[in-house]
Design a protein around this nucleic acid. Structure first.
Lengths: 239, 239
DNA sequence: ACCTGAACACCGTTCAAGT
DNA sequence: ACCTGAACACCGTTCAAGT
C-alpha cells in the first residue's frame, strides 16, 4: 500500500526491478538455504543474490533469527496449506497425513528441522498445532488432554526434524551420502563394549537398514495408539 | 600414562599446575555453558578461564563441535549413571525415571538440549538408548519393534529438550522469566484470528498455566501406553 | 610433546551518508 | 522512505615460533 512502485525501466538480466520487499528477501533466503545449507545463509551472500548491500536487508528484517524464522514459517505455511486432508478420513489418518507432510518438508529442506526448534515467536509452531489439534478434537480427546496430546505429537515431530537436520549436516560436511552414513554409525555401534552396550549393539542391523520415513510414521502410530487408549478410558468413565 | 606431570611449583592462586588435559577443558566448557549460556562458550573465553591461548585448546580438542558434544556427553553420562533404577521396579516406572532424569538434566543445563540434537557421533545418544532399551526389552516388546520404540521415545525427549533450550535462550535474551514468557505467548495466541486458529486459541489457558515437567511425563506416559498396546497385540498373536 | 599468540578469513550488525 | 557500503566487534581456526 504505502509502497511506491519505482522500478528501474531497463532491467538488466536478473536484476530486480522493484524495490526490495520482505517477501523477496525471504524467498531468496529459502533458496540459499536449500542450495547451500544452514551455513550458506549469510547476509553477504544474500545481499549479493539480491544485488544490494548487506545493510539494505536490515531495513526489512530485524535479525538473522527473524529471517530464519520467517523462512521456516514460509515452508511450514505452504506445507500445511497443501496437505490434502479429506473430510471423510478418520482423524488418525489425517494426523498421519499432516505429520508425514511435515516430515517430507523437513526432509526436502533439512534446515527447517533446526530452524523450527529454535524458531522465535510462535508462528510456525501454531501452523502445525492448529490442524493437528482439530483432528485431536475430532478424535474425541477430552479437553483437559488437548494440550499434552498436541505437545507430545509436536515434540516428537520436532525431535525427528532436529535429528534429520543434524545427520544431514554431518553427511554434507563429511561428504557421505545416507547409506554411507548409516553404515558408519552401524559399524561404530558394533565396536561398543558388549558388556556395557548389549542393547545398542543389537540395534546395529536395524540402524543400518531402517527407513526414516517409514519409521517416523511408525512412531506417529505408536503415539496415536497411546491417545486412543486414553480416550477410550476417559469416555467409558464419562458416557 | 604418557603424560608427564610437569607442574609449576609456585601455583599462583587459581592457575593450573599441571599441563592442560581434555578433561579439564571439557569441565571448564561445561561451567562456561552453565553460567553464560550457549553463546558464552568461546575459545577465547575458555582459554582465558584456563589461562592459556586459544590455540592451546586445539591440541586437545578437534573442533568446537567436538567440544560441545563432549560437554554434552559429560552431562548425559553422569545423569544416566546417577539415575537410581530399582531392580524390582516395573519397566514403565524405570523408563519414566530415566526420561525424567534427562528432563531434569536438560532443565538444569539448557544448552544440553540443543547440543544433544546436533551432537556429532553417537556417544551421548547411545548412553540414553542403552538403559531405555533394556527396559523396553524387559517390557517384552518384540525384537522387530525395538528400534522404532526407542527411536520414538528418544525423539520425543530430544524434541522437548530442543524446545526448552530455545525458550530458555529467548527468555534470557529478552530478560523474561518463565512466567513472563508463558504470559506473553499466551497473549499472542489469544490475538490470533478466531476463524483461523480456534484450536490454538483454546490452548491459551493451558499454555499459560502448564507445568513443563509434569507435561513432559504425561507425554512419556502417552507413549508408554502406545507401546503397551502394541506389545499385547503382538503377544496374543505369538503366544 | 605441548603451548603461545599473532594473524586470517569470515561473520552479524550498525550507521553516517546518500537518493 | 529506502538503500549503500565502509566499519566495528567478534568469531573459529591456523600456524610459525617457542619451550
Amino acid at each position: 500500500m504505502t509502497q511506491k512502485a519505482r522500478g528501474k525501466k531497463t532491467s538488466s538480466g536478473q536484476r530486480r526491478e522493484e524495490s526490495l520487499s520482505r517477501e523477496q528477501i525471504i524467498a531468496a533466503a529459502i533458496e540459499l538455504l536449500d542450495t547451500s545449507g544452514e551455513n550458506g545463509l549469510t547476509f553477504r551472500a544474500l545481499s549479493e543474490q539480491l544485488s544490494t548491500g548487506p545493510g539494505a536487508i536490515y531495513w526489512h528484517i530485524t535479525d538473522k533469527g527473524d529471517l530464519l524464522t520467517a523462512a521456516c514459517d514460509g515452508i511450514v505455511a505452504r506445507t500445511m496449506n497443501a496437505a490434502p486432508i479429506k473430510p471423510n478420513a478418520t482423524p488418525q489418518a489425517s494426523i498421519r497425513l499432516l505429520a508425514l507432510a511435515m516430515f517430507d518438508a523437513m526432509d526436502e529442506h533439512p534446515w527447517v528441522g533446526s530452524a523450527l526448534t529454535g524458531a522465535r515467536g510462535h508462528s510456525p509452531m501454531v501452523r502445525i498445532v492448529e490442524p493437528i489439534g482439530r483432528q485431536i478434537q475430532a478424535l474425541g480427546v477430552p479437553k483437559k488432554q488437548h494440550w499434552i496430546t498436541v505437545s507430545t505429537l509436536l515434540n516428537y515431530i520436532l525431535g525427528v526434524g532436529g535429528r534429520n537436520a543434524a545427520n544431514g549436516q554431518y553427511g554434507r560436511a563429511h561428504g557421505l551420502d545416507r547409506s554411507d552414513f548409516l553404515e558408519a554409525v552401524s559399524a561404530e555401534w558394533l565396536q561398543l563394549d558388549p558388556k556395557e552396550y548389549p542393547f545398542v549393539r543389537s540395534l546395529s542391523v536395524p540402524m543400518r537398514t531402517h527407513d526414516d520415513r517409514r519409521d517416523f510414521l511408525a512412531g506417529i502410530d505408536l503415539i496415536l495408539r497411546g491417545i486412543d487408549t486414553s480416550h477410550k478410558r476417559f469416555a467409558s468413565k464419562n458416557v
